[in-house]
């Protein structure tokens, strides 16, 4: 079970969180024209990297904030966590 540092609450067990997918995907702006290709990429296409991955988690059994987690998909090592408004480099 992972040990995730919520930027609001501190270290908490994985069972308090729910996974939310790739954090680098950006939704096309509302009310703006978007090509079918861009839209399909946003809805369906995801990379499945082995190694570092920046992803979203929600602290559902805690502060309910969505957060960013940089995790190694092979080893589960967590390098960094951040608020969604912050950048992970």
């Amino acid at each position: 079970m992972l040990y995730i540092k919520c930027p609001y609450c501190g270290f908490r067990a994985q069972k308090e969180f729910s996974y939310g997918g790739d954090a680098t995907v950006k939704r096309p702006n509302i009310n703006e024209e978007v090509s079918s290709e861009d839209w399909d990429n946003f809805v369906y296409m995801r990379k499945s990297p082995r190694g570092k991955h920046i992803e979203l988690w929600q602290h559902i059994a805690g502060c309910r904030q969505w957060i960013k987690v940089q995790r190694d998909t092979a080893t589960h090592e967590i390098f960094q966590t951040a608020k969604v408004t912050e950048e992970i480099r």
Partner: peptide, 10 residues
């Protein structure tokens, strides 16, 4: 969770 996602992230 869906509403929170859009308000917090999008």
């Amino acid at each position: 969770s869906h509403l929170e996602y859009y308000l917090q992230i999008v």
